[in-house]
Structures are given as structure tokens and as C-alpha cells.
Amino acid sequence: MFKDVTFGQYYPADSIVHKLDARVKLLLTLLYVVGIFFVKSYFGFMLTAVLLVAIVLVAKLPMASVLKSVRGILLLVLITALINLFMIKDGEVLVQWKIFVITKTGVHTTIKMVLRLVLLISGASLLALTTTPVELADGLESLMSPLALVKIPVRDIAMIMSIALRFIPTLFEETNKIVAAQKARGASFDSGSIFARVKALIPVLIPLFVNSFRRADELAFAMDARCYNATDKRTKMKKATFKFSDFVACLTVLSFFTLILLERYYFPKIGINIDYMIFGGLL
């Protein structure tokens, strides 16, 4: 289920989006995510989708790479959708069978919820796809740096995050190897009761843990050998600078956010009318 979530799966390309300051990207992603929760009309979702597609094009990413991260949460989306569909009981009843009721409001809420989740994950994955984990960790470190004043070890936390991201592919590979080896000894992971299945995971999880500790140990030596913690004045090869393109990016996302807020609170009629023009009687 988590296999295709693209965390730590940086997609290298030479684009303006890739070169944006990671701090800017982090804050703008946050703004985008908050913005999505204010979207109410199909028109608003269309606006969001247009923004998203535009970013993907500018970032020179293949659409598939974004969809891949959506695939990772498909099951979650499906379950939430089903719950929504059957739990909402107000509005015009479309189908009724025994205790199951599907209403028009339910259908629309569900569609919007799915749109919201998909746009949310796609937007968040854009951050991971265009920003290296190190840049991300550096960006977070920089954003959190005021916390260092209250003795929070911001630098170590940032290092831990970037290492965790770096080891995700390694651990996946290792898990696959262990699963193959235990299967070869007759273990089965896809039959029996839930209890039996959980128990079947023990021969995978224990070696995975043991090996991770060993890796952590070796990594610690390797980091020490390369003078980690040699000085409080650690420098950075990659300097984050606020460029003109960062300014443009901020402007774009801020206008999007403003548009969404305007559409929702000041001109709600516009969204409703446009939705009606497109979908007509379906609403």
C-alpha cells in the first residue's frame, strides 16, 4: 500500500520549480494544502487542477510520476469515499436498498472529497518530486531555526529526517530480499486468518529491525569518520537564496489562495453559476 508513495523519490529535471528555494516550496505547499480545504465548488476544484497541471508542466515532470503517488493512497481514498457515500443521508434520495441509502448530496460530497484528497496528495508529491530530501531537510531546518534559541536541536532533527528519507529505498529493497528468502523457506504471507498473517510477518520484521540497527551503527561510524559534529559552524554547499523565480512562485500561489477565498466567501454565486452552466441538471 505504501509502495508507490513517492516520498524520497526525487525526480531530477532541470526546471524553475526544481530550482526554487526549498523554504519557499515548503511554505507554498502548506498554503496550497490549506487552500484546498476552502474549495467548495467544482469551479474551485477546476482552478486547483489547472494550477497543479501548470506546475507539473513547468516542472517538466511526467504526469505519471504524480499519478503514481496518488496510486499509493488509492485504498484510503476508496474507503473514505464509500463511508461518505453511505453515511450522508440528507438531500434527494437516488438509490435505496435495505439500509443502504445514496443521496444526491452524498454523491456530490463524495466526488468533492475524492477530488480534494487527490489534489492534496498530488500537490504534496510535487514538493517531494522537485525537491531533494536534503534540500527539504535543509529548508525545514532553516524554517525551524528560531527554535534553536529554545535549545531544540534543530540541526540534528534535520539530519535525522534527511537520513530517514535517504534510507527508504534501501529498506524497501531489503524487505523484498527478506520476504523472498522466507518465502523460499515456505513462509506464506497471503493466506490464513488475520492473526496468522500478522504472525507470518515476524520472520520479516525481526531481521529487518536487526539489520537496521546494524546499518545505523555502521552509518554512525561513517558519519563520525567524516567529522560530523566537528564544528558548530557547519556550512552548506547549497545556498538557499530568494530569487526572482521564488517571488513569482509566491505571487502565483498567493493569487490562487486569494481567488479561492474570494470565490468562497465573497462571490459564492460565481462558483455555483459556473457549476450549473457545466453540469446543469446533474447538480
Binding site: 535517504r166 560530523y228 564544528t231 557547519r234 556550512t235 554547499m237
Partner: peptide
Amino acid sequence: VFQNPDNQTVATIIEDDVAFGPENIGLPR
């Protein structure tokens, strides 16, 4: 340089990893 190639790389991207040591000793950019 240690035995296991997977357990001594700190960074995801190669140039970032090579820069790790020099960054640690605080060299100018």
C-alpha cells in the same frame, strides 16, 4: 571507506553526499 556501500552514504544525491565532510568542518561554500 567502509565495507557496505549502502551504509555510509548520508545523502540521497551524490554531490550532496560528497559535500557532507567539507560541510561538517565548516569550509566556505
